[in-house]
Simulated assay, not measured.
Amino acid sequence: MTPQLLSIPFHASILAENDAGASLASGDAREVFPLASVTKLFTAYSALIAISRGLVTLSAPAPYPGVTLEHLLSHASGMAMGERAITRPPGTRRIYSNAGIEAAADMLEEATGTEIGRWIEETIAEPLGLTSLTVEGSPAYSGYAHAEDLMLFARELSRPTLISAELLDLATSVHFSHLDGIVPGYGNFRPCPWGIGAEIKGEKQAHWTAPSSSGKTFGHFGQSGSFLWVDPLSGERAVFLGEEPFGPWHRDNWSALNEEILHAMRGQ
């Protein structure tokens, strides 16, 4: 089934489903696309696996004064977007930072004794059977996968098998809840809730997720024109991959597209 109301002006792949058994598919679900920042979800989840195995903790100190692994993974460290420079005191502003995720990955490599791309492969891709997933460069934005594998991962984020439900609930709750910040491409939010790796919708308006999705909805989108989101309250989830990098079409239409996806599934 394909959304009927909104025309996507480029080649794309969509998968969506809910716990009631409804599903939606459009495009080639096995065509590999770049994930861009959706990669962060895999890096953060691999951190949760390391935590579950007692190899590291969220409170582990980073090599920056007052910064912990929790700060880095929730964009609360004060680190700049693209360089490892602390520009604000930790815990005072939600500064979206690729450099922060890369610093967190360095901590994971030290804790696990394994290169981060290999750690993601061993702890997530292999157990879940994600045959297309690769993370060969930056753990913040270099991943590739197809929609079928992204949906397998979205199911793991709905009903975890690699970590406990309690740990996933902790990770997808808001960390440093008072912080304001910017969601790239969508503007400033006060507050700007984030979990461990995953953005949390909260009370954000003019957001990329569907207006009717709950405030508990979490996920990520990427500058490659990709997204993955899960609504734990409604039991709904969706992934999107496309050939067009994030731009005006995505910003102006993703929310409406996600709403149509939900309406289509709820009408089945």
Rank of each mutant, 00 (worst) to 15 (best):
residue 118 R to V: 14
residue 110 E to F: 09
residue 95 I to Y: 10
residue 98 N to I: 06
residue 71 H to A: 03
residue 84 R to S: 13
residue 63 P to E: 11
residue 104 A to P: 03
residue 110 E to K: 15
residue 124 I to A: 04
residue 75 H to F: 01
residue 66 G to A: 07
residue 97 S to G: 02
residue 108 L to M: 07
residue 85 A to T: 12
residue 82 G to P: 04
residue 108 L to V: 03
residue 108 L to E: 00
residue 95 I to Q: 14
residue 81 M to N: 10
residue 111 A to G: 10
residue 75 H to V: 01
residue 111 A to E: 10
residue 106 D to I: 04
residue 74 S to N: 11
residue 94 R to S: 14
residue 79 M to T: 10
residue 120 I to A: 05
residue 95 I to P: 00
residue 91 G to S: 05
residue 83 E to N: 11
residue 119 W to T: 02
residue 88 R to L: 11
residue 99 A to V: 08
residue 67 V to E: 05
residue 118 R to A: 15
residue 74 S to P: 02
residue 75 H to C: 00
residue 64 Y to P: 04
residue 90 P to K: 00
residue 94 R to Q: 15
residue 84 R to N: 13
residue 83 E to A: 14
residue 61 P to T: 10
residue 121 E to D: 13
residue 66 G to C: 04
residue 80 A to L: 11
residue 118 R to F: 09
residue 96 Y to V: 07
residue 96 Y to G: 08
residue 115 E to T: 07
residue 104 A to V: 06
residue 81 M to S: 09
residue 110 E to C: 08
residue 60 A to H: 13
residue 121 E to I: 03
residue 125 A to S: 12
residue 86 I to P: 04
residue 71 H to S: 09
residue 110 E to T: 12
residue 76 A to L: 02
residue 108 L to Y: 01
residue 97 S to A: 14
residue 62 A to E: 01
residue 83 E to Q: 12
residue 71 H to F: 09
residue 84 R to K: 13
residue 62 A to V: 02
residue 74 S to T: 08
residue 118 R to W: 08
residue 125 A to Y: 00
residue 85 A to I: 10
residue 100 G to E: 08
residue 113 G to D: 11
residue 75 H to R: 02
residue 68 T to I: 04
residue 114 T to I: 12
residue 120 I to R: 03
residue 101 I to L: 09
residue 70 E to P: 00
residue 82 G to Y: 11
residue 100 G to F: 06
residue 62 A to D: 01
residue 70 E to L: 12
residue 107 M to S: 09
residue 72 L to I: 06
residue 103 A to D: 07
residue 86 I to T: 13
residue 125 A to V: 02
residue 109 E to W: 02
residue 103 A to S: 11
residue 104 A to H: 12
residue 89 P to N: 13
residue 82 G to I: 04
residue 65 P to Q: 13
residue 108 L to W: 00
residue 93 R to Y: 15
residue 104 A to E: 12
residue 86 I to D: 06
residue 116 I to P: 06
residue 108 L to I: 04
residue 105 A to G: 10
residue 79 M to P: 01
residue 107 M to T: 08
residue 86 I to N: 08
residue 99 A to H: 10
residue 102 E to G: 06
residue 62 A to P: 00
residue 80 A to H: 07
residue 111 A to K: 03
residue 120 I to K: 02
